[in-house]
């Protein structure tokens, strides 16, 4: 069980949170301008990296606030927690063979 450092409440156990999948996927401003396949990509296609993933979490059983997390999908180490709307921090991508 991860230990997630909620920016508003401090470190709490994962079971207080809900997962929000990949971060920084903005809703298209003009959906009609997208082809079916581009729209499907927005809807369904997500990164699944072996290494750092930028993802969203919400403190469902706490402050109910959304925030972003940079997490290594191999070590599960949380490398950064940063607010919604902020640019992701510059992180070194761990190398996994």
């Amino acid at each position: 069980m991860l230990l997630i450092d909620c920016p508003h409440c401090g470190p709490r156990a994962e079971l207080e949170f809900s997962y929000g999948h990949e971060a920084h996927i903005e809703r298209p401003k003009d959906p009609d301008a997208l082809s079916d396949s581009d729209w499907a990509a927005y809807l369904f296609l997500r990164e699944n990296p072996k290494g750092v993933i930028l993802e969203r979490w919400v403190h469902s059983h706490g402050c109910r606030r959304w925030f972003n997390v940079a997490r290594d999908t191999v070590s599960y180490e949380i490398l950064a927690v940063y607010p919604m709307g902020a640019e992701p921090p510059k992180l070194e991508q761990a190398r996994y063979v």
Binding site: S18, G20, R27, V58, R64, W66
Partner: peptide, 13 residues
């Protein structure tokens, strides 16, 4: 409720 909160906080702040 969670759905509305998510859109409000993440897409339409």
């Amino acid at each position: 409720l969670a759905h509305l909160e998510e859109w409000l906080q993440t897409e339409w702040p």
